[in-house]
Design a protein around this nucleic acid. Structure first.
Lengths: 201, 201
DNA sequence: ACGTTTATTGACCGGCCGGCCAGTTAGCAG
DNA sequence: CTGCTAACTGGCCGGCCGGTCAATAAACGT
């Protein structure tokens, strides 16, 4: 158990607020969540949230920044532990990205809300990841491991966007007739994607 | 010019409200739009909106239903005017879908909002379209025009999801380094997708 | 032991929210 | 012209919104 608040612990309190806020914002988006909701979900008063975060907007920013930072470091770690480019590593990267999103549905929804808001605060972070991914594809192309007649950035974008949309819009397409489960879809996507990205004979 | 309202025209008024509401909801989502905003954007009073639509929620439902109906009929028309299955027709379908989304950014955003809301009211409509698309792919597979070792529904889902995400998250990835414009991306996607969906040699 | 700081509370605020309602006016059937 | 229906308006309401503030109490330096 986490310690009961017989004694004060501002950092713990900040964390409790952030966690409750993350859950609520992820579920409902920014504007339909109220401070009262946030306060009761975190087990604190509204005033305390203002004391720690200043305003509802600033809390939202803090939640997003925290989630983006986690996403960024997780992705960077995955990129760095990837070894030398080869074709199987592309498959492994797609699988790793897919399973990361599956394990982090809150991050997926948070991204979706920020897409709609037009928030570009995570732009630099995203650009850095995408740059690294595209560079990796470019090297694989030069070694003849992937077809060289496509923009490397587009190659990464295609699998990132497919994985993202799979989880973002799951509530929609999980009811489509004949649609398989996560693993079945991933398998079929990989068949098509890997064959399509292979060098032309 | 549309006629000035020297004379009353309830249908025209309903339409004006729907159009203004569509623009606002598409831009900001449901909860951050206020009735006052809607009223002034439509050039009517709040009460009149209530008179015609009952409540803010019902107006939102009406906007969604209208947009989905348009989407549905447009897609059905595209499916029906497609001829016999062949490999080039798959390319044409992807291009048609991509350009439809490009020409209807409001529909794209409306879909995104409903994804996040978990709204499944367009489920039957979607299922019908997807069923038709998958059936089309199945026939192409039986004729040896497409690889037969993948779920037909997944084939359709892959290109639908990629196109959707391209436009839904455009504010994000348009700043990624090396990312091309709409047509360049579509071309690269088609290279990979068509090659990957082709029969195995 | 004693200030100082700061985490925390509850009461409170002006304003706007969605919605309602009584009243007015345009269209329309007879 | 006369009712009647329905489109349309302005004013208003109770309630909740995000936010403030003075008061309290726990932690902490000295």
């Amino acid at each position: 158990m986490t310690r009961q608040a017989t004694t004060r612990d501002p950092e713990q309190t900040r964390l409790r607020i952030m966690e409750a806020a993350t859950d609520l914002f992820v579920e409902q988006g920014f504007s339909s969540v109220t401070m009262s909701q946030l306060a009761s979900a975190a087990g604190v008063t509204k005033s305390l949230i203002h004391h720690h975060f200043g305003s509802k907007e600033k809390l939202w920013e803090a939640v997003k920044e925290h989630a983006f930072a986690q996403y960024f470091s997780a992705q960077m770690a995955m990129l760095e532990e990837a070894g030398e480019p080869d074709a199987e590593l592309l498959r492994a990267s797609v699988e790793a990205y897919f399973h990361y999103l599956k394990a982090n549905p809150k991050a997926v929804r948070l991204f979706a809300w920020t897409h709609l808001e037009g928030d570009t605060s995570c732009g630099d972070m995203d650009a850095q990841l995408m740059g690294a991914g595209a560079e990796w594809v470019r090297q694989a192309q030069q070694r003849g491991l992937l077809r060289a007649d496509v923009n490397p950035t587009h190659v990464v974008a295609i699998f990132v966007m497919t994985c993202t949309q799979w989880f973002e819009a799951k509530c929609h397409h999980q009811h489509w007739p004949g649609m398989g489960n996560d693993e079945a879809f991933l398998e079929d996507f990989l068949k098509i994607f890997m064959a399509g990205a292979a060098p032309r004979d």
